[in-house]
C-alpha cells in the first residue's frame, strides 16, 4: 500500500494552515488517497458490474429501438462523466491559478487524460448507437459537434501541459485553456434545447420526471454511479503516482546537487 511514503514529511505546510491547504501536504494526501482508493475502485466495479449485467440481460428492450437501447447504459454515463470531468478539470485549474494550491496543477494534469478517455467512450458508443437508429454514424448537429469540441479541449490540455520545458509554464497555460473551455459546458448541455438537433433532448432532468421506463432507469443509475466511482478511483491513483513521481524528481535533484 501507500504506507511506505508515510515516513517522509516533505515541505511541511505552515502551522495553522487552514482550508484547502490542509491537503497541500503530499504525505497527507497520499495517506488519504490510499485509504479511499480501494473503496472507490471496489464500489465502482461492483455498481458498474451490476448495472451492465442488468442493462444487458434483464432490462426490457425499447419498443422502437429494440435491443440497441442497451448501448444507453454505457453511452449516457460516459457522456455525463465527460462533462463532469471537465468541470473537475476547470475547478482544479481555478484553484491552481487563484490559490496556487500545490496539488491542483498535478490534479488538472491527471484528470485531463481520464476525461478524454470517457469522452472518447461517449463519442464511439454514440456513433455505434446512431448508425442503427438514426441511419448515420455521425452528423454535424450542435450536440455532437460540441462534444467533439470537448474532446479536443481535453486533447489540447494534454498537449499544452507537456509542451513547455518548465512544467510551471505548462500548468499555467493548461489552466487558462481549461477555464476558457468551460464556455463549452452549457453549450453541450443546452444545445438540444436551444437549436434543432438530431440528438434528442435529455430524458433525465433536474426539473421533471424522467421520460424513461423505471426498469431501464435503474440499471442506468447503477452504471452511472459505478462509472463515477471508477473515474474518481482512476484520478486518485494517477494523482498519487504523480505526487510520488514529483517527490522522486525532487530527491534525485537534491542528490545530484549534493554530490
Amino acid at each position: 500500500m501507500l504506507g511506505v511514503v508515510d515516513v517522509f514529511s516533505p515541505t511541511a505546510p505552515p502551522r495553522g494552515a487552514r482550508g484547502l491547504h490542509r491537503f497541500a501536504n503530499p504525505g497527507r494526501f497520499l495517506r488519504l488517497a490510499g485509504r479511499v482508493l480501494p473503496w472507490a475502485s471496489g464500489i465502482g466495479l461492483l455498481l458498474a458490474a451490476i448495472g451492465l449485467a442488468w442493462g444487458l440481460f434483464v432490462a426490457p428492450a425499447d419498443w422502437q429501438q429494440g435491443d440497441a437501447v442497451r448501448i444507453m447504459y454505457v453511452h449516457v454515463p460516459a457522456a455525463w462523466l465527460a462533462s463532469a470531468g471537465y468541470m473537475a478539470l476547470a475547478s482544479a485549474s481555478a484553484v491552481a491559478l487563484v490559490w496556487r494550491h500545490p496539488l491542483a496543477d498535478l490534479a488538472a494534469v491527471e484528470i485531463a487524460p481520464v476525461g478524454a478517455g470517457f469522452t472518447a467512450i461517449c463519442l464511439i458508443t454514440g456513433s455505434l448507437w446512431g448508425k442503427p437508429m438514426w441511419g448515420a454514424f455521425w452528423v454535424w448537429d450542435a450536440r455532437l459537434t460540441s462534444v467533439l469540441v470537448l474532446f479536443f479541449l481535453y486533447l489540447g490540455h494534454i498537449a499544452l501541459t507537456r509542451a513547455f520545458d518548465s512544467p510551471e509554464r505548462g500548468y499555467r497555460a493548461g489552466a487558462i485553456l481549461a477555464l476558457v473551455g468551460v464556455v463549452n459546458l452549457p453549450i453541450i448541455k443546452f444545445s438540444v434545447d436551444w437549436w434543432n438537433t438530431l440528438h434528442q433532448p435529455a430524458s433525465i432532468t433536474l426539473t421533471g420526471a424522467p421520460t424513461m421506463y423505471l426498469g431501464m432507469l435503474w440499471p442506468l443509475l447503477f452504471t452511472a454511479l459505478g462509472a463515477s466511482f471508477i473515474f474518481v478511483a482512476l484520478v486518485l491513483a494517477r494523482l498519487s503516482a504523480a505526487v510520488m513521481e514529483r517527490r522522486i524528481r525532487a530527491l534525485l535533484a537534491a542528490r545530484a546537487e549534493g554530490t
Binding site: D62, W63, M133, Q200, S203, M212, G215, M216
Partner: peptide
Amino acid sequence: HDETYMPK
C-alpha cells in the same frame, strides 16, 4: 427519436 424510452 424522442427522449422517451418505453418497452413494447
